[in-house]
Amino acid sequence: MHTVTRPIIIFLCICLVMLLLFPAVGSPFYTELVTRIMILSIFTISLDLLIGFTGLVSFGHAAFFGIGAYLLAILFNDVEHINYWWSLTLTLSMTGMAALVIGWLSIRTSGIYFIMLTLAFAQMCFYFFFESPHFGGDDGIFLMNKPEIMLGSRQLVDLENEHHYYYFVLAWLVGVYLFLSMILRAPFGHVLIAIKANEQRVRALGYSTPHYKLVSFVIAGTIAGLAGFLEAAHTSFVTPAYLGWHESGMAIMMVILGGMGTLFGPVIGTFIVVLLQDFLPGFTEHWKLIMGGIIIGVVLFLPNGVAGLIYSLTNRLSSKSKEAGREHV
C-alpha cells in the first residue's frame, strides 16, 4: 500500500499538464495514439482496483471492456442519432449487471481458481461473440453512427474531431482516477485494502468480505465497460479480440509493469507498453525479443514496477516527504 506524497502529487500534476498540452504539439497520429492509450489506461486502472487493492487477480477483465464496446455497437447499430448520455447509461448499467453475475459466481473461489474462473467466463463471452452470426462473428461489428453529446440542443463535444475526443477521454481518465481515489480513501476502500492484506482477519472483525469483493468487482467491471464504450465510440468498430485472454493478459502486464497498488502506476504501464509496441517494430523486425527482455528486466530489477521506482526516487529527493500529509490513494 502506497501513500500519495507531495512530490508524487507534483509529478502527477506535471504529467497532467503535459497531457493537456500534447495535442498542441503532437501530430494527428500521436494525438490519436495517446487517446487510445488513455482509454486503455481507464481499463487498466479499473483492473488495478481488483489486483492491486482488493487482491483479486482477474484474468478475464477484458470481457467487460468487450461487453461495453459490443453493447454500444449492438444496441445502437441502426440508430441514426445516438444520444450519448442515454447510450452510456444503458451500456454501463448492463455491463455492471454482467459484472455482478460473473463476480457473484467467481468470488466463491480464491487464488489461482479465481484467476481461472474469471478466465473461463471471459472465454465464454469471447466465443459467444466470436461464433455468433448475429453480432458479426469473428469479423467484428461496425458502429454506423457515433454518439452525439448534446446539452439541450447544442452539441457539446464533436466526437468526429480528434482534438475534441482527446480532451473528452482525458476528462474521463481524470474523473475515473479521482473517483477511485475517493473510493479508496473512504472506509469502503480501507476494507478492500485490508481484504488484500488479510481477508480472514477482516472477516473476523465482522465484515462480510464477499460483499465488499463483489462491489469492488462490479465497480471495476463497470469502469472497464466505460473504457470499452469509449473505444467503440472512438474507432466505430468492435472485434471479438477485445474480449480475448491476450487482452486480459496484456492488461495485467501493464498493471504490474507500471506498479500495482498505485492508481497512477497502471497509467504509466499502459503508456510504456503501448508506446514500445508502437516504437520497437520500426527499430527491428524481432521487436518482441526486446519487449520480452524489458519485461524480464523490470521483473528482476524493479520489484514494485515503474511506480516503485518513482517512489524511491522522490523519497530520495525529499526526505521530508514523510512528514507531509499522508493520504491513501
Binding site: 487477480v57 504490474i256 524481432h286 518482441k288 520480452g292 527482455g293 520489484p303
Partner: peptide, 24 residues
Amino acid sequence: KRDHLYQVLLTYALILIANELQSI
C-alpha cells in the same frame, strides 16, 4: 520468493522471447 504475479509477468516475457526466437 516473489509474488505469483511477477512469475506470470516473467513467464509471459518468456513466451514473447520463445516466439520471436522461433520466428528467427
